[in-house]
Design a protein around this nucleic acid. Sequence first.
RNA 1: GGAGAGGUACCCAAGCGGCCAAAGGGGGCAGACUGUAAAUCUGUUGGUUAUACCUUCGAAGGUUCGAAUCCUUCUCUCUCCA
Length: 373
Amino acid sequence: MTIFKTTHQDTTSNARLGLLSLGHGVVQTPVFMPVGTAGTVKGIHHEDVARIGYNLILGNTYHLYLRPGLEVLQHYGGLHNFSAWDHNLLTDSGGFQVFSLSGLRKIEEKGVAFQSHIDGSRHLFTPESVVDTQAIIGSDIAMCLDVCTPPEISYKAAKEAMELTHRWARRALTHRNNHETMKGNLFGIVQGNFYEDLRKESAEFFNELDFPGLAIGGLSVGETKEEFIHFLAHTAQYVTKEKPRYVMGIGSPDYILEAVEQGIDMFDCVLATRMARNGALFSDDGILVMKKAQFKFDDGPIEEGCTCRACTQYSRGYVHHLIKAKEMLGGMLATEHNLTYFYRLMEKIRFAIANNEFASFKRAYLERFYRTK
RNA sequence: GGAGAGGUACCCAAGCGGCCAAAGGGGGCAGACUGUAAAUCUGUUGGUUAUACCUUCGAAGGUUCGAAUCCUUCUCUCUCCA
């Protein structure tokens, strides 16, 4: 069963419009997904996330498994109900967490053994257990457990990680297809590190399997922007265009534009929400670091035309004050602003694609965003 | 009026003869943040013609090769007693 259809192909790039049909509604692509690691998009009500327009957010298997734990999630009938989120939910498998918590982990054929960052307790994730966990969470899109690797590892290590990712993917798919209660879709994750032939091999491997969608993983893990762009484009050319294509872990507006240009349909990133909490707000004229003294007496909105609460109800000076004073409302308003900004950016991107002018839109956007004022 | 404690950089505060332009906080300023161990972290914070020199630890004077540190006087603040 296909869950995705392309509705328009931009004539100036590989960018495309699509519709992604999931358990909690249809998602317009390209789509940016806010990250709600531990069952909450930090600093904002789920109600407000939905009000902005989002109908697909992330959760994280690793974090939710450790806390609140499967018993609690089962008690509440899944994360949708538990967190009052009535729209779509994608959960990351924990592959990235296991990678970023290196030192505590041990990767074996059967799965990955790791220690909790919370209390040091020992746990094992297998391709099968991670599918089970995401079934309990109730994910509309579940991700395979993968082996995510950093830049500058050897070819041999990269190849081994990729091959293990592939074996795990087969096991996860088999398990999912025999699963009695899982309703969500399971996506595969292309790996291959920063080696062109491995990326090609991994993409072709996943194209052959019966996943309803595919992700490109192992990018945005510390490589340069040039490497990111190169390996994104290189990998994307081999990943089937018949399925939704998801680049994990990006990004900033410039990274998102690069991804959309390569025909990527989905991406998620903590950047918008984390930077908001740290006092950096996005605008078409670049990033505003709100703690700067220049905003102290600034009566204007964060961004003219923005529809968020921060922009429609408060001045830059007030937000500046809240951020400086470390008031909770500051991070909340900033989060709402950045998520609104990214939502509107995606709307503009989709509009540009619909009008076959993505290439010029991208150029003009970046020119303005990085123009020094 | 008496007794005691104390005045250190933008603020609080350590230092109590040389390793002190002076710990640590805070505040200020700057930077970072990309499948969230982050409402976090990092750098910087007397001046200059800058691996050195100049000015600075309430004020003035003194002891010493050398003083934020010891002595004298003055001054201001706080606490207790009358």
